[in-house]
Nucleic acid binder design. Structure first.
Lengths: 340, 340
DNA sequence: CGGATGGGGTTGATCGATTAAAAACAAACG
DNA sequence: CGTTTGTTTTTAATCGATCAACCCCATCCG
């Protein structure tokens, strides 16, 4: 079943069929009806390979994520996929697992597939690889870590805003000793978030205390360990901000297993607002970063670059807002105690 | 950069280059070296569209899942993707969101893309759609719900085994009143699991009590609500088995908010063994269903069908095992009390 | 009436591979 | 030396679309 048969069946040329399908020029209503009928009757679906070969377009997009198991990403993938679906694109999701070799392989494969664009939703991406895409004129959209230039756009999550919302909330409640659990510092995204935190503290005139800033791994287990470290401090924090919700959940568990209560003993704020955050006990106060918005912006930006090639990209800014649930409260002085 | 240039550069014909790349026939070592050199020097990557058009193969697989946000699926996607990567396939993940219209659209798109095979990892799939794939000779592998025939294989998770392991564990601990929280009964997978539970109870000579079998939604919120219903019973269960881990987590929260302790007051068993299950408080006893194994079996089976077309599919059986953590214990009679 | 205009179609080259069939070459044999 | 046989390589048709260039025909205008 191909375009030729449809053309014959409808008594027109293949060009007419092609132009009807692609709406690339006006076709008289009579002819159009005939052709649609033929398409219907034969159950014709255009061959994407042939189309791709002839037009140089694949209607495929690459979506590179670092860890699809991290709950942040499925949401992202879902929304991106949905947006793509509506615009006739299919996406190939490439999971890098934070592994460079794998990333290399995957990007090469995407190039071979002639993807029309790539969304790079991981902070770990080799510049050389980006160049490989760039020199082939493949549009790219980054999350957080891209420099805007020709064929490259960037979605910037406003961590400064998120951190300030979170910390302000804690300050208003009366907290002064605020701990922080970062992601693994090998990851750019973790460094960005952490430095946003430190910067904001400085701005508010709070002296940075190194011991209050610990390192997790973006996962529950890391949050647990980091929290335990914080609990060993002589003068421990009355509130802790974490770099993502999983970390906060881990921290919450550590607190519970030490017989401490959230938020009475320690206030806790997460980051991202994954679905799980609303269902913890107590429900987690967290900084919402809308994956839907991020995904949609990423897709829109990418689409724009694809439509008008050789155009300078743009930076899109995605704001945050604080979702106050029940893991934050005023510090109660009596729970303050020495660690010895 | 195309095969022609490479051929010229190496001083051979395009056919030779093609056959070298695809290893479809023997090439003399001398020629081979020349050609590889040319490929290297020119940085040549074959055009997948052209290749697909000429060969009728796309090296693309479709992976249809119902809800990528459900933690069971990212694991599955990840492992499947990995297996595919090693064998030179790329996958298009299609999220159906339990929506028929969407599913229809997605499957059609996969057909247009000329995918070499499809893994259907959702229980909700219209037979007509399956036929559309079948008549085109596209191999399919199902999870749980497929009938094996030409070009169709099926991966069967052994729910009977899982349920028996879980229930036996509870019986051994001394439980007799065992509650169950199912998934939404609109989903085939939920019905399968539930009937496995009921069947096993009968086998063990325990009278089914309708009030002990409630309905959740595979999510935390549904588990919570269902558990609350169970807690209102006059003679409430001393143990509850749930249809998946999220449901169990919801149930755990409901228990906690009623001041009840797990496992002292009520024992709880989940199903699936998602990563989260190990980190709840207390850690959740659950039936492990290896997503890695499921994904690998699915891929292997699909690959086999693809390699030897028109071959009868096979049914692969994936076992389960009970992971005993801390959410199960002997029932303590004193916590038994009327609900009034 | 003859030429310009433009809507509606068709023709045929082209995209970059694969792959039968043919050809070229080499070795073996009577 | 001519013929087989076997191995390696080339020729050229083919896959199924897209799209620039061209054609046809009706209409309009001076």
């Amino acid at each position: 079943m191909n375009i030729k048969k449809v053309a014959e069946h409808a008594g027109v040329s293949t060009a007419t069929v092609s132009r009807l399908i692609n709406k690339t020029s006006y076709i008289s209503p009579g002819t159009a009806k005939k052709v649609w009928r033929a398409i219907e009757e034969l159950g014709y679906h255009p061959n994407v390979n042939a189309r791709g070969l002839a037009s140089g377009k694949s209607s495929l997009l690459g979506l590179i994520v670092s860890d699809i198991v991290n709950p942040f990403f499925p949401d992202l993938v879902k929304s991106f996929d949905e947006a793509a679906l509506h615009h006739g694109y299919e996406i190939i999701t490439a999971n890098t697992n934070y592994d460079e070799t794998r990333t290399l392989l995957r990007v090469r494969r995407l190039i071979e597939r002639r993807v029309d664009g790539v969304a790079i939703m991981t902070s770990e991406m080799d510049q050389a690889l980006v160049d490989e895409l760039s020199t082939r004129g493949i549009p790219i959209v980054f999350l957080d870590t891209g420099k805007v230039k020709e064929n490259i756009s960037n979605i910037r999550i406003d961590y400064e805003q998120g951190v300030s919302q979170a910390v302000n909330h804690l300050l208003e409640l009366g907290h002064r000793r605020i701990g922080y659990i970062s992601g693994p510092l090998g990851l750019k995204s973790a460094r960005i978030r952490r430095s946003a935190f430190l910067k904001f503290l400085k701005k508010k005139g709070i002296i940075e205390e190194k011991e209050l800033v610990t390192i997790g791994d973006y996962k529950i287990s890391g949050g647990k360990k980091a929290m335990e470290k914080l609990l060993k401090l002589e003068d421990r924090p009355t509130a802790v901000l974490t770099s993502n919700d999983l970390t906060a959940i881990g921290a919450m568990q550590a607190l519970r297993s030490h017989g401490l209560h959230v938020p009475e003993d320690v206030s806790l704020i997460g980051f991202d607002d994954i679905a799980l955050a609303a269902t913890t006990d107590p429900p987690l106060t967290t900084v919402n970063v809308s994956r839907v918005k991020v995904a949609e912006c990423a897709f829109e930006s990418l689409l724009e670059l694809i439509k008008h090639k050789t155009q300078k990209g743009r930076e899109v800014h995605v704001g945050t807002h604080l979702v106050i649930r029940e893991s934050t409260a005023k510090p109660s002085p009596k729970t303050r105690r020495s660690g010895r």
